[in-house]
């Protein structure tokens, strides 16, 4: 893990992204920030629309939030921006686009079903990939190594 060379800056020649990965701690705090943000907005909808309809809105809200922001050129949700980390394509380091952002959100649901095992997976994975990273072929990297041009870009 001392190869910080190729791939820095992103958008390169299609090789696997080298260099550092975002740590568990920063990703956890980013997820906490995003979770609180969506949770608060969803709570308002729950109070207005009732539990069932509110849950539906929460799901769609999360889907739109993660698919748009993680699919954007910056690859950053508000939480990831606060923690200076971003989602990039594992192959080439570029943005993943809304379609794969959507796939990554579906992957989040898969990751959380067995008590969050898919999230914990990054703790021992050699590329620090969660299941939703593997499903969407992404890695999460620090912006110190992969700077963001504009947000959301």
């Amino acid at each position: 893990m001392s190869d910080f060379g190729s791939g820095v800056g992103g958008g390169g020649g299609g090789g696997v992204v080298a260099g550092p990965r975002a740590s568990f701690g920063t990703r956890f705090l980013a997820a906490l920030i995003d979770g609180v943000l969506i949770g608060v907005v969803a709570l308002v909808f729950r109070l207005l629309l009732g539990a069932l309809l509110g849950s539906g809105v929460q799901l769609l809200l999360g889907l739109a939030y993660y698919a748009y922001l993680e699919g954007s050129p910056s690859g950053q949700t508000i939480g990831k921006r606060a923690m200076s980390i971003r989602v990039v394509d594992f192959n080439g380091g570029g943005p993943i686009g809304t379609g794969r952002g959507l796939l990554r959100y579906v992957g989040r649901i898969v990751s959380s079903i067995p008590c969050g095992l898919g999230y914990f997976w990054m703790l021992w994975d050699s590329e620090k990939q969660t299941w939703h990273d593997k499903i969407a072929t992404t890695v999460v990297v620090p912006t110190s190594a992969y700077p963001v041009a504009a947000w959301p870009g």
Partner: peptide
Amino acid sequence: TVELHDLRVA
């Protein structure tokens, strides 16, 4: 090879 930093924090 399992890196231990993140496991230690968790």
